[in-house]
């Protein structure tokens, strides 16, 4: 199983699309590692600098409809090769969410109030997320503040995370 804990990157915008996560011009790469320098290259909003902000981060916290647009699995791959295996959001686009679990990564949905509180409490701080996959909790902490939040993923999604993805699971079962 992959690691789902570490420093958090807060992306305070809804509808971040897969073209912003990894622009199409890099889809000519066959190797996943080649995508690493280009993660979130075309994401533009005040206070976000991809070159400075992504380094050392392992978890993304964001708003609604993350990963909309193109079906490119290069989007989860670009996160993965940067050491980010967990995205926590209010909601996800269908294909992106499925791609994450298909790769043994996690896309965790939390209620809008919880996401709001994460941003208002921890946004702008040096924040760490500890994930207990079996217990279904994330513990978010920064500068003496700590918050433990429960989440649920389906049994099927949990199986994909445990088995490292969909290919072997499908080949064994269908």
């Amino acid at each position: 199983m992959k690691s789902f804990s570490g420093k958090a990157l807060f992306l305070d915008r809804s509808d971040i699309n897969t073209d912003e996560i990894i622009p199409a011009k890099y889809l000519t790469e066959i190797s996943r590692d080649a995508l690493a320098p280009y993660l979130l290259e075309d994401l533009k909003f005040d206070g976000f600098d991809p070159t400075a902000d992504i380094a050392d981060k392992s978890v993304v916290v964001t708003r609604a409809n993350f990963g909309c647009g193109s079906s490119r699995e290069h989007a989860p791959w670009a996160l993965e090769v940067n050491g980010i295996n967990l995205v926590v959001a209010e909601s996800f686009a269908r294909i992106f969410r499925q791609n994450m679990f298909n790769c043994g990564m996690m896309a965790v949905e939390l209620p809008v109030d919880t996401i709001d509180k994460l941003f208002s409490t921890f946004g702008g701080h040096d924040t760490t997320v500890e994930t207990d996959v079996d217990g279904g909790t994330i513990t978010v902490s920064a500068e003496g503040m700590t918050e433990t939040i429960s989440f649920t993923i389906s049994r099927f999604d949990a199986d994909l995370v445990a088995s490292g993805g969909w290919v072997d699971f499908a080949d064994a079962n269908y």
């Binding site: 647009g69 193109s70 079906s71 490119r72 699995e73 989860p76 294909i95 992106f96 499925q98 791609n99 298909n102 790769c103 993805g165 969909w166 290919v167 499908a170 080949d171 269908y174």
Partner: peptide, 29 residues
């Protein structure tokens, strides 16, 4: 493995864009 696969629903089909892993399993199984 293309999000605009939904186009083919115009024929009364269920057609969906998927990522590379779903495509890979589709090819295999």
């Amino acid at each position: 493995g293309d999000s605009h696969t939904c186009t083919h629903g115009a024929f009364g089909a269920f057609a969906a864009g998927v990522g590379t892993t779903d495509l890979e399993v589709g090819i295999l199984k």
